[in-house]
Amino acid sequence: MNLSIPLGEQNNDYAAVRVISHDSDGIEVKGAKMIVTLAPIADELLIFNMPGLKPGDEDYGVAFALPVNHPGVKIICRKPLVKESFSDFDYPIVNSFDEIDAYLLLDNVHIPWNRVFVFKDVQKSNIFYDKTFARNHTGHQGIVRGLSKAEFLTGTAIKLAEVLGVNGFINVQEKLGELTSYIELLKASILLSEEEASMSEEGVLNPSISAIQAIRYNFPKMYERMVKHIQSLAAGSMLSTPHSGDFHSQMIWLMLKIDQNF
Rank of each mutant, 00 (worst) to 15 (best):
M1R: 02
L3S: 10
N11F: 01
A15N: 06
A15M: 06
V19M: 09
S21V: 08
D23I: 13
S24C: 05
S24L: 09
I27K: 05
E28A: 10
K30E: 14
E44Y: 04
L46V: 11
L46K: 11
I47F: 05
P51M: 13
G52W: 00
G52K: 04
K54G: 00
P55D: 14
P55N: 14
D57M: 07
E58S: 11
V68M: 04
V73S: 10
I75E: 01
R78V: 11
E84G: 10
E84R: 14
F86W: 06
D88Q: 14
Y91D: 06
P92M: 15
W113D: 06
R115V: 07
F117M: 15
K120V: 06
V122A: 11
V122F: 04
I127P: 00
F128Q: 05
D130R: 14
R135Y: 01
N136G: 03
G139N: 08
Q141V: 12
L147A: 04
A150R: 01
T154L: 01
A157N: 01
V163N: 14
N167L: 04
F169R: 15
N171G: 08
Q173E: 14
E174P: 00
L179Q: 15
Y182H: 13
L185A: 07
L186M: 13
L186N: 05
S189R: 05
I190P: 01
E195S: 13
E195D: 13
E196T: 12
A197V: 07
S198Y: 12
E202L: 12
Q213F: 00
R216A: 10
R216T: 07
Y217T: 11
N218A: 11
M226P: 00
Q231D: 11
G236M: 09
M238D: 03
P242F: 11
H248C: 12
I258Q: 15
